[in-house]
Amino acid sequence: MLKLNYTEGGLYMERVMTSPELAIAQRVVLAMRLEQSLQVEPGHASLLLPADVPALEQLELSLRQECRGRVNVIPVDDEFVEVSLSGSWIAESKEAHEGMFLTVLSDSLSETLRERVELLLYKLWQMSEAHISSLA
């Protein structure tokens, strides 16, 4: 599973080896113990990758073959593509700009294939972060 944390400081992605249901349940319990409100709903998240990042074509091919409908890669301009993901949004309110997004790329894939595609997307995100940092 991929976990995207949207914070004031930006986006941070990590791979998590638990199920979305367990991660959501743990977050609900934490919110209850802290007496915080919590909104959990199906949704979409996106991240930008440089269009020239290595292995982008490999990702697009893997997604077309293995993750139809859950993940889309859409050109933004000559420099960037947007990766759009379906999953669950967890935040203090519907209007919150900070929160956690959980996604499993495809339930129909074998665990090995799903982990391979998730790892590839995660590595591309890491490379894009390094690429963007070097431009700043």
Rank of each mutant, 00 (worst) to 15 (best):
D107Q: 14
T103D: 07
E60S: 01
I132W: 09
L113P: 02
D52S: 08
E57L: 06
L85I: 03
Q58E: 05
P42K: 07
R64F: 00
Y12Q: 14
A55Q: 11
S84P: 04
A96F: 15
S110T: 12
E66S: 05
E66F: 06
E118A: 13
E98N: 11
L34Q: 12
S46V: 08
E129A: 12
L34N: 09
Q39K: 13
L61I: 08
L22R: 09
S108Q: 14
Q26A: 07
A31N: 09
V71C: 05
K123M: 10
Q36C: 07
L109R: 01
I74R: 12
G69T: 03
L59W: 01
N72T: 10
K123A: 05
G10D: 05
E98D: 13
V104K: 10
M17N: 15
V81R: 02
S110M: 09
R68V: 03
R64C: 00
E92S: 14
E82P: 01
E92M: 13
E8K: 13
E98F: 08
W125M: 01
E41W: 06
A96E: 14
P54N: 04
M13H: 03
D78M: 04
L102A: 04
R27A: 15
T112Y: 09
E41Y: 12
L105N: 00
S133Q: 12
A51I: 02
L2Y: 03
P20L: 05
G99E: 00
S133T: 14
L113R: 10
M13G: 06
E98I: 11
N5P: 01
L63K: 01
E57T: 06
Y12M: 11
E115N: 09
G69S: 03
P20S: 07
A25I: 07
W125A: 02
V83L: 01
E118G: 10
G10N: 08
L22T: 14
Q39Y: 13
S128V: 06
E115P: 05
